[in-house]
Amino acid sequence: MRPVAYPVLARRRLCPDVFLIELDAPGLAQRVKPGQFLNIRVGDGPDPLLRRPLSVCDADEGRVRLAFRVVGRGTALLARTRTGDRLDVLGPLGRPAPAPRNRNVLLVGGGIGIAPLLFTARRLATGNRVHAVLGARTREQLILRREFRALGTKPILTTDDGSLGFPGPVIEPAADAAAKLDRPLVFTCGPKPMLRALVRRLDPVPVWGFIEERMGCGTGICYCCALPRKGGGWVRFCADGPVVLLNEVAW
């Protein structure tokens, strides 16, 4: 696996601290599967040393879109990317999410965690019944609503401040939605407390979580990412994930 530099077709701001970068990457768009991530080099030199792992927000018609929130130095540098730049990409990395057929799929996204679920929704829309519960702190931060609707899903929306949709976290609307579905397959991405609360609330329904935490190499060689597994040991979520059955995680 070699890093490839892809041209940036567009960079736009989805909300004050969330950016979307669109790459011209036909081969990659065809190859990448929901749940996989790309490891992006930020800056020009050896500093910052590590790449930044970003899950794929969408891939369609030769284009790959990445959405990320600015949380530190690396993502702040990445936010400075301009149209015409080239982005040094290693990937796709990680194992794809399970690809069901003819199932009730429930997507539960929180904040920037909404991003990878869009790609999942696109790929699962044919052959499954896709439902979505999307939440954020405010209406402004509830990203990609239009894109979800364009796929034919009518997402249930929630905001912590009540500025749009159901007031409060995604957990209860997600539990209501799951209860109405026959054998739902749940995919979720969002902040750790949300994932933890969701898997507890839905128990014993299997919940697949897209883990977006710090990694070292992204390729399985450094043993720096470790999620505690029930019964001992770790999930090395860069290589064995990043989509992990959250019911098996000891949080």
């Binding site: 040393l49 690396g74 990694m215 070292g216 450094c222 043993y223 999620l227 505690p228 770790w234």
Partner: peptide, 11 residues
């Protein structure tokens, strides 16, 4: 050896 608890890497 199980190694140390996360996080295991900083920059």
């Amino acid at each position: 050896r199980a190694g140390n608890p996360p996080p295991r890497i900083a920059e």
